[in-house]
Design a protein around this nucleic acid. Structure first.
Lengths: 258, 258
DNA sequence: AATATATTCCATAGATTTATAGAATAGTCG
DNA sequence: CGACTATTCTATAAATCTATGGAATATATT
């Protein structure tokens, strides 16, 4: 169940002479993607894993046709790649560099725009005072079973790729499942990355209830970029089984339209 | 001769409620800068060092008023910072992150857009086959005086910051000054960075004439980001004197409009 | 084949952006 | 002060972008 391929998909109006553009015009083809907030949001989502068009539309509160249009723009800039499975089309970031670029945008915005820092501080202040757990530290603790790792992103993103051993616990379900957590075991939560507030918010909730909870440094994309193992699938909120198989986060490829 | 400051400069129509934008709208404020090829070009120039408005206009072949307008956009995104000296205003990149972002854009474009790689290959093929010199290697050789280092960027950029000991030799003057070069000494040329073709072209010229010439890995911005010494000023194409004083490549600051 | 679903294509009204000319500002130099 | 220079501001026409409804495609299902 997987007609994996990509490239030659939409048949939009490809600006005729793409090859004859100057260097900076080429760079602007990519810049065009990040001029629109919704496109950045979509790209950010895609850095968490692949998603179908309407899943993306829902996640970003867009009409499907609008989402599709945005995805076309991203496709023309070669930042995303698609895979068809039955009647739906799954998009994903085309390569590591895409996520690194989005991350660089985030870092820059955070460094230069006071407003961004402010937005990030408005929520999750409690967790901010707790030092974050490094990836290496987490790996150690997971091996010796000293911690419970919570993936507080939406289920879809957990399934698209998570830290081996992590439990899927979307933020909105956290309070309902508090009973399942042993108050004596340390909890480490993670989410999408430095600009995402899910994990800090989760840690806030947990700390208030007296749990020993901390956030992981960064999030899933950074974990992946660090070359660490990623597990896939496995639905619910039960303790995840043994580490799933490794995966192929990205595939490099390019081809032209039909 | 230097009323150094910045911030509160232009008094454009600041979109009223900047603070009330969502996170992704904030990121898009920065994205807006890189949607326009000329703005990317300007930003790239500014990563080489500060320049006055009309110098920038000339370098990017823009009318002054257009250049100024673009600079305003960049200023509103807080990516540039200004300094007034007499009647002219000097712009520069606001911080390291800005240059890193531009670099990330370049890396991404190169990785994903076949057209970019093609543009880069069209010129400077000869030099491509010669392995580049690492920064560490260059430092060693400079200390023991085994090499001549050529800065082949425009004079203005050399003056705004160059590798200590490097000679200013803008590409267009290279052929005329070949006599000044000792054919027995190795030559290392550098320019703006991985997307710049000045150094590869220079190396081509030199290799054709039988010189032992190579390119430095990356360019000036990367040198600076590596935390290495940067020299300033010193005009002509003579061998540069002893390393100039260190400098303050960027200053972090922000403030509001008048 | 007929129906249903997911996605893309097409057309379009409204908003935004771009380049640029001309006027206004700010600082310098006699 | 008055002439001059560098830059920014204002207004505007042309081009581009955005969201969206409705039609067209592609695939699966009955």
């Amino acid at each position: 169940m997987d007609g994996s391929r990509d490239g030659a998909r939409p048949a939009n109006a490809a600006p005729a002479n793409l090859q004859q553009l100057g260097l900076y015009e080429q760079l602007a083809r990519i810049g065009k993607v990040v001029v629109n907030p919704k496109r950045i949001e979509l790209l950010d989502l895609l850095c968490q894993g692949e998603r179908s068009v309407d899943a993306l539309a829902v996640a970003a509160s867009l009409k499907v046709t609008t989402a599709s249009a945005h995805l076309q723009v991203m496709w023309q800039a070669r930042l995303v790649v698609t895979r068809r499975d039955g009647t739906r089309v799954y998009y994903r970031a085309a390569s590591e560099e895409v996520c690194r670029f989005v991350a660089a945008l985030g870092v820059l915005a955070r460094a230069r725009l006071a407003e961004v820092e402010q937005i990030l501080q408005e929520i999750g202040t409690g967790a901010r005072s707790t030092k974050r757990v490094s990836r290496a530290e987490l790996l150690d603790k997971v091996r010796s079973g000293e911690v419970v790792v919570l993936d507080v992103r939406p289920t879809e993103e957990y399934q698209a790729g998570h830290i081996p051993g992590a439990v899927s616990m979307p933020l909105e379900h956290l309070e309902a499942h508090l009973d399942d957590l042993d108050p004596d075991v340390e909890v480490v939560a993670y989410c999408r990355g430095p600009l995402c507030l899910l994990a800090p918010q989760a840690v806030d909730v947990l700390q208030e209830r007296g749990y020993h909870a901390r956030c992981l440094e960064d999030g899933m994309p950074e974990w992946r970029q660090a070359g660490l193992d990623v597990a896939r699938g496995q639905g619910g909120a039960a303790l995840a089984g043994p580490p799933g198989s490794g995966d192929r986060p990205f595939e490099v490829s390019a081809s032209d339209r039909r």
